[in-house]
Design a protein around this nucleic acid. Sequence first.
DNA 1: TATTGTTATACTCTATAACTATA
DNA 2: TATAGTTATAGAGTATAACAATA
Lengths: 144, 144
Amino acid sequence: MSGNANASSDLGAQVRSAVGRVYRRFRSERVDGALGDSAVTVLTFIHKYGPQTLTQLSEADRVSPASMSQSVNRLTSAGLAVRGSDPSDRRKVLFTLTPEGEALAAADISQRNAWLDERLATLTDDERAMLAEAAALLNRIADS
Amino acid sequence: MSGNANASSDLGAQVRSAVGRVYRRFRSERVDGALGDSAVTVLTFIHKYGPQTLTQLSEADRVSPASMSQSVNRLTSAGLAVRGSDPSDRRKVLFTLTPEGEALAAADISQRNAWLDERLATLTDDERAMLAEAAALLNRIADS
DNA sequence: TATTGTTATACTCTATAACTATA
DNA sequence: TATAGTTATAGAGTATAACAATA
């Protein structure tokens, strides 16, 4: 058991475990009555990158177009987003946030980030720098 | 917009984004007919740490005992786990994997890790070492 | 009384299949 | 024909509330 033939798999398992544990911890920090995971992710994405088509949203979250259609349906039903037309291609639907959607997204995001910010504040500068590098690397991996 | 008053929140947002993106990517790598997220997590945990009570499992995943009860119900219905008694405390239920559960857990885990291992293989030694440190740090954060 | 676990019920999120509308 | 999007239906996962059994 002292060999390292599975060194890569071991690292993979470590990363998978860490990502899963932090993700579930994030999820458990959701407060009563707050938005669900998909809703927050979609609101955040539109907030950051502007109006998006259904296909853009479904690819960003790696879910099926049908799943995303239902997620945005919940958002529009709640008055957080609206459907708009793309003049250049009438098949497309551009989803835009309402003022309520923008406000709720910002509030929920900062609430969910609260516990993480507390932990990050206790780290050393070196640890924070390392984590920033790791986050960039993980984002690159997720996109590849 | 050039200040760094929110440096901590920025790092938090980066980490949150990276974790969410990798997690969703993991989820999307699930193959047809494979186990769901909760099932894999529970099977992996029991496989790694041995028979567990419901409370232990629910705390490990940070879900309610009621949610975990239903998750393990799906596992026992599928013949992947069995309920056992704790002689020292008859309120407790010890969940143990069947041979089928052990085999399926191992197979599904390696399948889900496949794409990550491919990416990790393209990294430099320094990057892998950094990622291992980051994973340890994230696990520590998730537990705190 | 407190702890451990379960069931009932409802919501979010996701998927596949079948469909409409536009390019 | 191909692409963009929707709806119908089903299943996994989660939560709260109410409950039973044991400590």
